[in-house]
Simulated assay, not measured.
Amino acid sequence: MQVTATHAKNRFGAICALAKTEPVFVEKDGRIDTVILSAQQYAQLQVGGKAETLAQRKSEFEQAHGAWLSEQTQRFDTHGLWCDDVRVW
């Protein structure tokens, strides 16, 4: 649904109730300025965005640093940790 900013201000309770079933687009100066969503819809947007972003970031990191990661893993398998022989006084 699309409403004007004045209508949204004057009937805020009704707009909030409507937002539980569908997004409400608030128009200001002839353009859509704001979207009112239910808390559930907002949470779904947040979860979806973060999951994609994290997966994308992981993939990009592995592509960019895959060779270095393999080298470090091989070094660890061959020599172990650098601090294995450190003695605590």
Rank of each mutant, 00 (worst) to 15 (best):
T4R: 04
A5S: 10
T6N: 03
T6H: 08
H7T: 03
H7E: 02
H7K: 04
A8N: 02
R11A: 00
R11Y: 00
F12R: 10
A14M: 12
I15R: 04
I15F: 00
A17H: 09
A17E: 14
L18A: 11
L18G: 04
E22T: 01
V24W: 04
V24T: 09
F25C: 11
E27S: 09
K28C: 09
D29E: 07
D29L: 02
G30P: 04
G30N: 00
R31H: 10
T34C: 13
T34N: 12
T34E: 14
T34M: 14
V35E: 00
I36D: 01
I36T: 00
S38I: 00
S38G: 08
A39C: 13
A39W: 06
Q41T: 10
A43C: 12
Q46E: 08
G48K: 01
G49N: 05
G49Q: 03
A51H: 11
A51K: 15
A51L: 13
E52G: 09
T53Y: 15
T53M: 11
L54I: 12
Q56P: 05
R57G: 12
R57L: 14
K58C: 13
K58G: 10
S59V: 05
S59A: 13
E62N: 04
Q63M: 09
Q63D: 13
A64N: 07
A64K: 12
H65F: 15
G66S: 05
A67H: 06
S70Y: 07
Q72S: 00
T73F: 10
R75N: 15
F76Q: 07
D77F: 14
D77W: 11
T78V: 11
T78W: 07
T78K: 11
T78R: 12
H79L: 08
H79P: 05
H79S: 10
G80R: 01
L81R: 13
W82H: 15
C83I: 15
D85F: 07
V86K: 03
V86P: 00
V86D: 06
V86E: 06
